[in-house]
Computed example of a mutant assay.
Amino acid sequence: MAKSSINMLLQACFFFWLFSALVHGKPLSLVTSEGPPHTINNKLFSGIDLDVTKAVLRQLGYSVKLNFVALGRAEMLVRSGQYDLMAPIFFAQDTDNFYISEPIVTYKPMVFSLSERNLSPESISDLAKYSVITFQGAPGYFGDAFKAMSEQARYKESADMSVIPEILAKSRYDFAVLDQYIFYYFYRINDKQRPIDIFKHHYLIPPVTASVAFKDKMLRDRFNYELKKFKQGKGYAKIVEAYLGRMEQVALTDTQ
């Protein structure tokens, strides 16, 4: 090989290395809002959604700096180009400078009851003759049938979601409505071995997928490719187990 060709090759390698260093040297800025166990503002752990996102980006060579803001602001901050990405995001599609990943987590809003009660509602409307506890603002998420039920049942919305599993466990209400991850996170927050077979699950509300939004399309595409491989491994299950403990009895999410 001619000396000039070798020099050109060395220069090309150098500039490629320099470009990679510049791209990967500065952490990606991720903006989110706190909502345990999906997103947690803590130096030691950051929640299921963010841990999955960080793990995939780490495989691509990126570090991530988390920024927590008030609910609703994250999307605007990424769309305006002030941050690199946000998570989670729901029901979104690609637009200019705003690109949506494949799902990272499946949220499963669930109706829970105590197994010993042997209750078997077939629809949300069936809950109207019972007592129901859920989170604040739930009717705005679950549609007209849920809103109608909330006006007929002995119905309560709690501003503190952490108390809902314990209230149901003590049989103070017939049913509780909460995302599966949130329910079991708070139920087992002090004991990851706490038995969960006391609860019965009623699949009356459709699941919702959560994604990551990027301002850079190429990074989104690379993320999707790596995310698929990550879900096929054991990393996802380990992240969930870290927050909820072993959950063999419950199919928490579709990781395919």
Rank of each mutant, 00 (worst) to 15 (best):
D197C: 02
I167Y: 04
Q256W: 11
K192R: 12
M218S: 14
L227F: 07
Q152C: 03
Q193W: 10
F68C: 07
D160W: 01
F214A: 02
Y187D: 05
T95I: 09
V52H: 09
S46V: 14
S33R: 04
V31M: 11
S131E: 06
E102T: 02
S211Q: 11
G72A: 07
V212Y: 02
L178M: 15
F175R: 08
R194V: 06
K231T: 08
F16W: 09
L66F: 10
G233D: 12
L85I: 07
P207G: 09
A70W: 04
L28R: 09
F68A: 06
Q11W: 12
A138G: 02
F14V: 11
P206M: 01
S125Y: 06
G25A: 02
D96S: 13
Y236H: 05
N118Y: 06
I196V: 14
M8G: 09
R246A: 15
F230T: 08
Q232R: 02
Y173D: 05
P121H: 03
G61M: 03
Y107V: 08
S20G: 11
D144K: 06
I205W: 03
K228E: 00
K231F: 06
S171C: 07
I133Q: 01
V69T: 09
S4A: 15
I100K: 00
R194N: 09
H202K: 01
A92Y: 04
D84E: 08
I100N: 03
F214Y: 01
S101V: 05
K200Q: 15
R58L: 05
F175E: 09
S101F: 05
S63G: 13
F15H: 07
P207C: 07
L127A: 10
A2G: 12
N118C: 09
F14L: 15
T106L: 07
D216R: 07
P207V: 06
D94P: 00
E122R: 14
I205S: 01
S5Y: 03
N42Q: 04
D197M: 01
D179W: 02
T253G: 10
K192Y: 08
Y225D: 12
F199C: 08
F45H: 11
L28T: 00
N67Q: 10
A12T: 11
F230L: 03
R79Y: 01
V31I: 14
W17Y: 13
F15K: 00
D96K: 13
L57F: 10
K217P: 02
K238T: 13
Y225R: 10
N118G: 01
V64S: 01
P36K: 05
L227R: 01
Y184C: 03
F142G: 05
A169P: 02
Q152L: 14
G140L: 09
L22D: 11
F135Q: 04
R117N: 14
